[in-house]
C-alpha cells in the first residue's frame, strides 16, 4: 500500500515539478553565455533541415486533401471561387501548425528521447561533464533553441507546399493557373491569419524539445529504458502540445480579436 501511494500519488506531481524546474532552467540558460553556437547549428541541421522533406511531402498531401474537402463543402453554396482562400485560411491558421507539431514530435521527440537516453545509459553524459562541459547547455539548450527556431520555418514550408498541393488538386479539375490561384488565396487571407498560428509553433517546439530531453536524460534501465524514453517522449510531447494548443488558440483570439471574426 505505501508503495502504491508512492508510485501513484506522490511521484507524479513530484516529477511534474521536476520537469517544470528543468524547463525553466533551459530558458534561463539559453540567455546566459557561453553559447554553444556550433552545436546549436548542428542541431538546427538535424532537427530542422532534415525534417524538410517530411514536412514538404506531408504539406503537399494535406493540401490535396484539404482542397477536396473545401471543394465538396463550397460547391454546395456555389462558392467555388472561394476554394483557394478557404483552403489557405484553414491551412495557415490551424492545420499547418498542428500537423507540423505532430510530425515533429514524432520525428524529433523519438530521436532526441532515444539519443539522449542512450548517451545517458552509456555514460556519455557523464563523460561530457568529466570533460568540463556543461552537459545541460550542450545537450538540452542547443536542442531547445534549434527546435524553437526550426518550427515556424517548417510551418511556413508546410503552408507553402500545402497551397501548392491545393493548387494541383484544383488545376486538375478546373485548369486554374498557379498565379490566379495564389492571388485568389491571398485576396482574403491576411498576415494576422498567418502570424499567430506560425508563431505558436515556437511553443510547440519548446514543448517537444524539453519533453524529449527531460525524459531522455532521466533514462535508466539500459536499452529497454532507451526505447521507453523514446516512446514516452512522442506520446507525452504530442499530448502536451495538443493541450497547449487549446490554450494558445484561446489566447490568440484574445490578443488578435480580428482573427475571431
Amino acid at each position: 500500500m505505501p508503495d502504491f501511494f508512492r508510485r501513484f500519488v506522490v511521484a507524479p506531481p513530484a516529477r511534474a515539478g521536476d520537469a517544470v524546474v528543468f524547463a525553466a532552467r533551459a530558458v534561463r540558460e539559453a540567455f546566459r553565455p557561453p553559447f554553444e553556437l556550433r552545436e546549436t547549428a548542428r542541431q538546427l541541421y538535424e532537427i530542422g533541415w532534415l525534417s524538410v522533406p517530411l514536412i514538404a511531402a506531408a504539406g503537399f498531401a494535406v493540401g490535396i486533401v484539404l482542397s477536396m474537402h473545401t471543394r465538396a463543402s463550397l460547391q454546395r453554396f456555389g462558392a467555388e471561387a472561394l476554394i483557394p482562400a478557404a483552403l489557405t485560411l484553414a491551412l495557415v491558421r490551424e492545420t499547418g501548425p498542428l500537423v507540423v507539431g505532430l510530425l515533429v514530435s514524432g520525428r524529433v521527440g523519438a530521436g532526441v528521447g532515444a539519443e539522449l537516453g542512450a548517451m545517458k545509459v552509456t555514460e556519455q553524459v557523464d563523460a561530457l561533464e568529466a570533460s568540463a562541459v556543461d552537459s545541460f547547455k550542450f545537450l538540452v539548450v542547443t536542442r531547445m533553441v534549434a527546435c524553437v527556431v526550426a518550427m515556424p520555418i517548417l510551418t511556413t514550408v508546410m503552408n507553402f507546399t500545402g497551397i501548392v498541393g491545393g493548387w494541383v488538386a484544383e488545376t486538375a479539375i478546373s485548369g486554374m493557373g498557379f498565379r490566379t490561384y495564389f492571388e485568389a488565396a491571398f485576396s482574403i487571407v491576411q498576415f494576422t491569419d498567418y502570424l499567430p498560428g506560425t508563431l505558436k509553433t515556437t511553443v510547440f517546439g519548446f514543448i517537444i524539445a524539453i519533453t524529449a530531453s527531460y525524459l531522455g536524460l532521466r533514462t535508466s534501465h539500459g536499452t529497454q529504458g532507451v526505447g521507453r524514453s523514446a516512446t514516452r517522449s512522442v506520446v507525452l510531447a504530442s499530448m502536451l502540445m495538443i493541450a497547449a494548443n487549446v490554450v494558445l488558440v484561446r489566447l490568440i483570439f484574445f490578443v488578435f480579436p480580428e482573427t475571431a471574426e
Binding site: 542512450a118 552509456t122 555514460e123 556519455q124 557523464d126 563523460a127 561530457l128 561533464e129 568529466a130 570533460s131 568540463a132 562541459v133 556543461d134
Partner: peptide
C-alpha cells in the same frame, strides 16, 4: 560553483570503465 568545478575538471583526465566514447 559549476564554473569552478569545470576549472578543476579541466586538469583531471578520466578514463571510464566502459570508455564512454562519444559515439
Amino acid at each position: 560553483s559549476p564554473p569552478a568545478l569545470a576549472a578543476v575538471r579541466r586538469q583531471v583526465g578520466f578514463l571510464f570503465q566502459n570508455a564512454a566514447l562519444f559515439d
